[in-house]
């Protein structure tokens, strides 16, 4: 089984290691041969833009984390004061725990749901192409627009409460997004809904690479459905799991627009995340320095979890 998978993964590794495959570049480079297409300097505008937008802008933003700038006028360099304020403020620590809860909650549930759907739609079903499109739809739609639709669904006078009342559970009707206990779970539902399609596509790509023969061989050897999944399919799609969870966590940690549209961080901070706090501090409350410091903390957290997560799901320790 491992032997079947090995050549595939090596083939996938080769270009990543940056080795030139013989015949593509070296032979043709000195002359303007038929293989030549493009010059390195063509990339310069793109490199300049990436450098200016991603690195210079981020660097300047990072610098303001050490100042008391309000967004306008002059400023003073205040050292680590903004960071001290963050770690002393209980509301900001609450936002940190909300961020982690939503990120890991949406990754876990979104990936499980995505995997189940991908397995279900992998081969057998006739309507699988339509269903795949439907499940992928939330990823394509604007998160802001769909968040407003969800907001309407969860509204006190919205369809969910109307449904509950219709089935005789009217006492369960509540303003879902303004209920301190339920608001964060309601937000989680929306995040899982929107991330499932993305995980599904990655898992389907992974599943396409699982050879039917191996599964059949395992079935002939007497493995049941769960054993085939556990011992054949899952190890084969491990790289897909790594990608889906890493991207999910990065996306989950920085998620902003659905929360802003659904609750605005409310009620009274119950769904506040680091991303919504960054926006509020920097732009709504004119504390640009504090907002920039918070954004740096968020960036560091994302980096730590992305690296950790990559280590944990590395495809094979022997590689």
């Amino acid at each position: 089984m491992t032997a079947t998978m090995q050549p595939k993964s090596e083939a996938a590794e080769a270009p990543r290691r940056g080795k030139r495959t013989p015949g593509t570049g070296e032979n043709t480079r000195p002359r303007r041969g038929p293989m030549q297409f493009g010059h390195w300097w063509w990339a310069l505008p793109g490199i300049a833009l990436v450098f200016a937008i991603h690195y210079v802008a981020t660097g300047i933003g990072g610098f303001f984390a050490f100042t008391n700038w309000t967004g306008i006028g002059s400023f003073k360099i205040t050292g680590w004061a903004n960071f001290e304020a963050i770690f002393k403020d209980p509301t900001k620590l609450g936002a940190l725990s909300n961020t982690l809860f939503l990120a890991f909650g949406s990754v876990l549930l979104g990936n499980i749901a995505g995997l189940v759907i991908a397995l279900g739609l992998n081969r057998v079903l006739k309507t699988r192409y339509i269903l795949r499109t439907l499940f992928f739809m939330p990823v394509v739609l604007s998160p802001l627009a769909t968040a407003y639709i969800w907001k309407y669904i969860f509204d006190f006078d919205g369809p969910l409460n109307a449904f509950l009342t219709a089935i005789g559970a009217g006492d369960q009707a509540k303003p879902w997004l303004a209920d301190p206990q339920w608001a964060i779970w309601t937000v989680l539902v929306v995040l899982v809904w929107s991330s499932t399609g993305f995980a599904m596509v990655i898992f389907m790509a992974g599943l396409a690479g699982v050879p039917v023969e191996v599964e059949e061989a395992a079935a002939i050897d007497g493995a049941n459905l769960w054993q085939r999944f556990r011992n054949v399919t899952l190890p084969a799609i491990r790289p897909a799991v790594a990608i889906a969870t890493t991207l999910g966590i990065v996306q989950g940690l920085r998620v902003f627009d659905p929360i802003m549209a659904l609750t605005g961080g409310g009620p009274a901070g119950a769904t506040e995340t680091l991303a919504t706090l960054v926006y509020k501090q920097a732009f709504a409350l004119g504390n640009f320095g504090g907002g920039a410091a918070l954004a740096l903390v968020l960036a560091a957290i994302i980096l730590i979890f992305a690296v950790l997560q990559q280590r944990l799901t590395r495809s094979n320790p022997e590689d």
Binding site: D179, G266, P267, A268, G269, A270, K280, A284, L285, G286
Partner: peptide, 21 residues
């Protein structure tokens, strides 16, 4: 002196209504 005072009042009252504060 700044918009954070009003923000603390406004979100705080929201918390009083939901029983959080």
């Amino acid at each position: 002196p700044n918009s954070a005072v009003y923000d603390a009042l406004a979100t705080g009252v929201q918390g009083i209504i939901t029983g959080q504060k």
